[in-house]
């Protein structure tokens, strides 16, 4: 028996919004430590890794490890049926071929349940090595989303250059060129507004704007985003989900042909 309950459906809606543009389907691996999903996008350029810890749920029970392959478009249809303040419970029997989403209104007067067929997905799991990154940038997630949106107008690719002075995002194309420089903030009223840079070595890497823009769909999950970079390895874009876990996106760099 698997059962996981969240007080608010909003968080699950936000998580789905953060992955459904990149993935058509995904396998949710459930164990007593929580729920994990790892999947590459269709073109195998990026990797999504979602971790939701069992202790972050209002209730969590997982008697036997189960892997639930879900069509994310179908899951989105079901989650549309939940109000933001509904409690959501995800339930599945051991070896089941369906999963049930149950939504309860705050006053418990409306209870709905939606059963969805599970899929058998051939999933390739990738081992992600522990890495000490040359540069780790933390910045407001809305600022990062804004920069990705703005620079995507100029080119398909964006250059991210990080030094101890700051981080620079650049794009150039037929229209012209764009540069956005962010310096480390010296003092801020709110922690969420801070830009911080931990640098061992300066790094310059090129990435496809459309993937970065897809990652920023996770912005509603967290006020801050963390970018981890080293030369010639994938960028990690991480959004922490308060008290529940995180979503990490890995993006392969573009290299000189």
């Amino acid at each position: 028996m698997f059962e996981a309950r969240l007080i608010s459906a909003t968080i699950l809606k936000k998580i789905l919004d953060a992955i459904k543009d990149l993935l058509n389907e995904g396998t949710f691996d459930c164990s007593d430590s929580g729920i994990q999903l790892q999947a590459m996008d269709n073109s195998h350029v990026s990797l999504v890794s979602l971790t939701l810890r069992s202790d972050g749920f209002d209730k969590f029970r997982c008697d036997r490890n189960i892997s639930m392959g879900m069509n994310l478009g179908s899951m989105a249809k079901i989650l549309k049926c939940a109000n933001n303040d509904d409690t959501v419970t995800i339930k599945a029997q051991d070896n089941a071929d369906t999963v049930t989403f149950m939504f309860e209104s705050p006053n418990h007067e409306k209870v709905s349940d939606y059963e969805m067929k599970l899929m058998n997905l051939d999933q390739e799991h990738l081992g992600i090595p522990e890495t000490d990154y040359s540069c780790v940038v933390r910045m407001p997630s809305m600022e990062f989303a804004r920069i990705c949106r703005d620079l995507a107008q100029f080119s398909e690719s964006m250059l991210i250059c990080c030094t101890k002075e700051g981080v620079k995002f650049s794009a150039s194309g037929d229209v012209g060129s764009a540069n956005v420089k962010l310096a480390q903030t010296s003092s801020v009223d709110k922690e969420e507004e801070a830009v911080s840079i931990e640098m061992q070595e300066p790094v310059t890497l090129t990435f496809a704007c459309r993937y970065l823009n897809a990652f920023t769909k996770a912005s509603p999950l967290s006020g801050q985003v963390q970018l981890s970079m080293s030369a010639d390895v994938p960028l990690v874009v991480e959004y922490r989900i308060q008290d529940l876990g995180h979503i990490r996106y890995y993006l392969a760099p573009k290299i000189e042909d």
Binding site: G127, T206, P234, A252, K254, I255
Partner: peptide
């Protein structure tokens, strides 16, 4: 020109 690499070329299958 630039070439897009794939994520599988950096992380190995487990």
């Amino acid at each position: 020109s630039e070439k897009q690499t794939t994520i599988g070329s950096y992380f190995s299958k487990v």
